[in-house]
Simulated assay, not measured.
Amino acid sequence: MNADRSPSSHSTRPTLFLDVMLGKLTTYLRMCGYDAASARDRGIEDDDEILKQSQEEDRTLITRDEQLSERAENGVLLTSLDPTDQLRELDARGFDLSLSDPARCSSCNGTLVPERGKSPDHAPDGKRIWRCEDCGKRFWKGSHWESVERTLSDLKR
């Protein structure tokens, strides 16, 4: 990883491209504020196409595929099958895995903006709501957020 794109700096976080094997990890990284594109979301399974997309978009490729990782100019190889262990691997590499206010849509990777006006009927009263500019989904810090927060805090143990 290039030194000027250190994952521990919020202002210079790398943009990421995750291969199809890393769906749950993608969600975690988006909840940590990373711009994390997914080959799965784009319907791309071919290694050559994954590599091409990550390079064209100047994204760090995160993969479990050793051969694909070796071909990438800017790649991170993960060895674990378990998403929590994958997070540990990224944490050990200096990725900032902390939650702040929601910034990226966990579904489509779009940018979240504070919701203005009336909250949807299914949203808890008094919760701050964010809306995805791309897909329109709404988010708030609920039980899922708390579960992810616990998982991330347990990484250091």
Rank of each mutant, 00 (worst) to 15 (best):
P7Q: 07
R88D: 04
T84F: 03
W130D: 00
D121N: 13
A92S: 09
R30F: 00
E146V: 12
L16H: 01
H144W: 02
E56D: 09
R150I: 14
I50K: 07
E89V: 06
G75H: 03
D46K: 15
N109G: 02
R128H: 15
T26P: 02
P120V: 08
N109I: 04
R13H: 04
P124K: 15
E66V: 14
Q53N: 09
L51D: 02
L90I: 11
L51I: 15
D121H: 09
R30Y: 04
D121Q: 14
I44F: 00
M31C: 07
A3L: 14
P114M: 10
D101E: 10
K141A: 06
Q86I: 03
K137T: 11
E57G: 12
D48L: 14
L155Q: 12
E66T: 15
K156Y: 04
G75C: 13
R42F: 01
K24D: 05
T63A: 06
E149Q: 13
R40Q: 09
R64I: 08
M1D: 06
S153D: 12
D125L: 11
T151Q: 06
H122R: 13
E66A: 15
V113Y: 00
S107F: 05
E57F: 07
D121P: 02
A37I: 05
I44G: 01
T26W: 00
L68M: 13
Y28L: 08
D154Y: 05
E66C: 14
D96S: 09
G75T: 08
R131L: 03
W145A: 10
S9V: 11
S98D: 07
W130M: 12
D82N: 15
E133H: 00
E66F: 00
L78R: 03
A72W: 01
E66D: 13
R93T: 03
D82M: 07
M31K: 08
A39S: 05
L87I: 06
C108T: 08
P114S: 08
G43S: 11
E45D: 05
C132P: 00
E70M: 11
D19I: 04
D154A: 15
R138T: 10
T84L: 08
N109D: 15
G23D: 14
R150H: 10
L90V: 07
R30P: 11
K24N: 10
F17M: 10
Q55H: 11
S6R: 14
E45Y: 06
L51A: 06
R104T: 01
D125S: 12
P114A: 13
Q55Y: 01
G142F: 02
L152R: 13
M1A: 12
K127V: 13
V148F: 01
D4R: 12
A37H: 02
S143M: 15
R42N: 13
N2P: 08
T79G: 13
L78A: 01
A92C: 12
I62C: 06
S54K: 05
H144G: 07
L25H: 02
R93P: 02
T151L: 03
T15Y: 00
L22T: 01
N74M: 07
G117H: 08
E115R: 11
D134Y: 00
E89S: 10
